[in-house]
Nucleic acid binder design. Structure first.
Lengths: 255, 255
DNA sequence: CAGTGGTCTAGACCACCGC
DNA sequence: CGGTGGTCTAGACCACTGG
C-alpha cells in the first residue's frame, strides 16, 4: 500500500488519472471521499452497488472493492452483507462516558441529562483559533455544560465552536437542547462529527468547578481535552470535560 | 467476512477442510496461526513467499493473501514490500511510559532503570489463578519492581507470573536483569508477549507505596492493571503499575 | 425472488529490495 | 538482476437480506 493512499486530502483534486505513484484504488477512494464530503451521499444513505460503481469508474470489481475497503477502514463507510454500502452516521455523542463508570442504578449506558450553564460569543484565543483553523481574533461560540445522572452532576464541560458554522446555536433556546450534542450539530447546523481525539490528563478541581460538580475544592479530577473533526477533516469542536478521577476507568489495548 | 474468521482459536484443530460456514482464507489463517504458535517460524523470521505458500495449500494467490491480511491485522505478521512476510517480534516493553510524561532532560523516550525490590514464590489468589489459567492453589512468581528515570523513582510495579513457564526467573540473580522485562521473558523463558490489555484507574498511594516512589502518603496515583498474552492467547503476566497521577497523560482516538 | 456484498480463481504486470 | 510483495483484471459462484 502506497503512502499517498492514506492521506485523506480534503477534497482531493479529482483529475481523470491517478497521480503518478498513486495506486488506482487510492485515487478512486479519494474521489469517493470527496463526493461523500460534498454531500452527494448523506450519512445513513447507501452508495450505488459496487458492480455499478465499478462500471461507472471503468475499473475491475476487485479494484473498486479495495477503494471501498480503505474508506471502511477510515470509518467513512460501513458495508452490510446483502444490504449495501452505507455512509456512516456521525459519532453518537455519549462517548465521553467510556472514560467513567458512574453507577446509575445498574444501568451503565444511560445518557446523562445535559444543562447549559452559560453560552456566549467570545474572541477565540490564539490556541483556539489555530486549532479551529480560524483567523486570529475570530469569534467563537463557547458553552459551559453540566451533565448529570440521576440528578447527580458528573461531568463539567467547556465547549468552543467555530462561528459562522454554528451560528444557529447562538440563538436557539438552550432549555430545549438535546442531551446529546453531536446529533444536534448534525440536525441544526448540518455538521457531522466524524472523528475525535481525546487527550487525558489529571488535575485538581478549582473551587468553582468543584461547586458545579458537588465535590470539594481540590478534589482530584480527570480532564479530557477533545478535538473533533468533520468529514473533510476540519476541526469543528474543542471540548474540555472534567470528571471525578475516582470514577475514571478506561481500558486500552496494546497491539 | 464471517465471524469465525476473527476468533483466534488457540491452536485450531487443522482438519483438511474449512469448517462448514467458515471461509477458506479464515481456515488458512488458523492453520498458519497454529504453525507460528508452534514455533515453525520464530519471531523475526520470514515465511515462505506467498506464491509458494499458495501452491503448497492448493489455493489461489488472492485467497492466501486474504489469510495473511487477517494475521497482519492481528499483529502476528508484518509484510515488507520486496522483502518478505515476517513473524513479528513480541512487544518491546517500554509501553508503560505511553501513559506518562516524565520529563527526562528532554529525552522523552528513554528506558527507565529497573530494580527488583522483592521476588518470591507464592500461592496464586483465586483471581490470579483464574486469570492466568492455573488450577486453584497453584504457585506463581511475584515481583516488586521499581523503575526510575535519572535516579528518580517513577513507577512501582507488582508482577505475577505463572510458574512452570517462568521458573528460570525464580533462580537467576535479579541484580543482572534487564531494564525491559518482555525481551528478557523471550530470551530466558522463551515466552513471547504478543498482546496486552491495560485497565486504567485512579487512587491514592498507601504510605508504603508512597515511600517507594518518594511521594507523600495519600498522593493521587494512576493504577494500570495489565493482562498480557502470548502468541497462543494464553495469559502469561498480570501486572499492576502505580505512578504519580500528575504525570499522567494519554491520547485516545475516537473512531 | 431479485439484489446486494463476500469469496475464490488464474492469470498479467508493476514496484520495491538487496546483491 | 532475481525474488519479493502490491496492483489490477474479468470472470464464476456463494451467502445474506428484504420484500
Amino acid at each position: 500500500m502506497l503512502n499517498q493512499d492514506l492521506i485523506p486530502s480534503p477534497l482531493a483534486a479529482s483529475s481523470d488519472q491517478p497521480a503518478p505513484g498513486q495506486s488506482r484504488y487510492g485515487w478512486l477512494a479519494s474521489g469517493l471521499r470527496a463526493r461523500i464530503a460534498l454531500g452527494e451521499w448523506t450519512p445513513g444513505t447507501a452508495l450505488p452497488p459496487e458492480a455499478l460503481l465499478a462500471r461507472e469508474q471503468g475499473v475491475a470489481l476487485g479494484t473498486l472493492r479495495q477503494a471501498l475497503a480503505l474508506l471502511v477502514a477510515e470509518g467513512l463507510l460501513e458495508r452490510r452483507h446483502g444490504r449495501g454500502t452505507f455512509v456512516r452516521a456521525g459519532l453518537g455523542g455519549a462517548s465521553m462516558l467510556r472514560f467513567f463508570r458512574f453507577r446509575h442504578d445498574g444501568d451503565l449506558q444511560a445518557t446523562p441529562k445535559s444543562r447549559i450553564l452559560a453560552r456566549s460569543v467570545a474572541l477565540a484565543s490564539e490556541a483556539e483559533a489555530d486549532a479551529l483553523g480560524l483567523p486570529p481574533g475570530a469569534s467563537i461560540l463557547t458553552l459551559e455544560r453540566l451533565r448529570s445522572l440521576d440528578g447527580r452532576p458528573c461531568l463539567l464541560e467547556h465547549i468552543a465552536l467555530p462561528l459562522p458554522a454554528f451560528a444557529a446555536l447562538a440563538a436557539s433556546d438552550t432549555q430545549h437542547w438535546d442531551d446529546l450534542l453531536y446529533p444536534m450539530y448534525q440536525r441544526v447546523c448540518n455538521v457531522t462529527v466524524h472523528r475525535a481525539q481525546d487527550q487525558l490528563s489529571f488535575g485538581l478541581l478549582t473551587a468553582e468547578q468543584a461547586g458545579r460538580l458537588e465535590l470539594e475544592a481540590a478534589h482530584p479530577c480527570v480532564q479530557v481535552q477533545r478535538t473533533a473533526f468533520d468529514l473533510t477533516g476540519r476541526c469543528i469542536e474543542l471540548r474540555t470535560t472534567l470528571g471525578d478521577a475516582f470514577a475514571f476507568q478506561y481500558t486500552a489495548q496494546v497491539r
